[in-house]
């Protein structure tokens, strides 16, 4: 531990001043664009992601892909060339983005009720504007909001969060780019926070298996925290939209 910089200081603060179990600031907005059926924007710390959902619509291109019992879910992950501190050559098509697309699809497929839309297709596009650690979690959260905005039935929210192990002992949540760079393992999970089911888990580097349960519990806790934030955003958005159509005038608002 002498050479490696400690990720959590003696008084329990991380490099950016957070405590081990604190998320970065999450700000989000639904319905950013008018052309897609659903769209959302999310900021987690400095990481900024835009998501757009088109569909369900008729299968485009190759019709033979259409399935008789479920909708096809099509995901594309792309990163703006200026999103990282060093300029990227291509926004998509490289190995990392195709991997991200596949993982994104996997997480979202677990929550979307695809069986309701046979012979159709749902397109989900995410665009990363600024990558500062935790790109995948932000993408999943943005895509969830966009799906809700599009009115596509979901089993429940899908939320993702990353966690790591600091100083070989303390589990910490929502890893920033700086912390990723300084080393330490990163565990990313996407989960259905209400039923506590994990739909995707990915880990880089290594730590002892004894540490796994507590890191995973921390990441799951992060997912639940994010769910609360997203839920609030969805409710206030629906309220705003509803108010403008005049429903608040007809009946008293009931706070649950």
């Amino acid at each position: 531990m002498s050479k490696k910089k400690e990720l959590v200081s003696k008084i329990g603060l991380r490099l950016d001043g957070r405590r081990a179990d604190e998320l970065r600031r999450v700000r989000c907005k639904m319905g950013v664009f008018s052309q897609p059926d659903g769209s959302a924007y999310i900021e987690q710390g400095l990481t900024k992601v835009l998501a757009a959902v088109y569909g369900p619509h008729q299968v485009r291109g190759n019709r033979s892909k259409a399935q008789h019992d479920s909708a096809i879910v099509n995901c594309q992950f792309s990163m703006a060339v200026f999103s990282t501190s060093e300029r990227k050559k291509r926004p998509r098509g490289d190995r990392k983005s195709s991997e991200m697309s596949i993982h994104l699809r996997q997480a979202l497929l677990a929550a979307i009720k695809v069986e309701l839309y046979p012979w159709s297709q749902i397109d989900i596009y995410v665009e990363v504007l600024h990558a500062d650690g935790g790109v995948y979690p932000a993408c999943v959260n943005a895509a969830t909001l966009a799906l809700i905005d599009a009115g596509i039935p979901l089993k429940e929210y899908v939320c993702a969060c990353s966690a790591s192990l600091a100083n070989n002992d303390i589990p910490m949540v929502d890893i920033s780019h700086q912390e990723e760079m300084l080393g330490g393992p990163t565990l990313t999970i996407a989960a259905l926070p209400m039923s506590e089911k994990i739909v995707l888990m990915e880990m880089s580097q290594r730590f002892h298996i004894d540490h796994l349960p507590k890191v995973m519990a921390k990441a799951l806790k992060g997912c639940k925290d994010i769910k609360v934030i997203l839920d609030e955003a969805v409710r206030s958005h629906v309220e705003d939209v509803g108010c403008s159509t005049g429903w608040s005038n007809t009946s008293q608002k009931i706070k649950v």
Binding site: F33, S39, L50, Q76, S78, A80, P91, R92, G93, Y125
Partner: peptide, 16 residues
Amino acid sequence: FFVDCSANATPDFEGR
């Protein structure tokens, strides 16, 4: 100058 047509704009821009 580099222009990137994001698929967010329209699904026609997907891929290339």
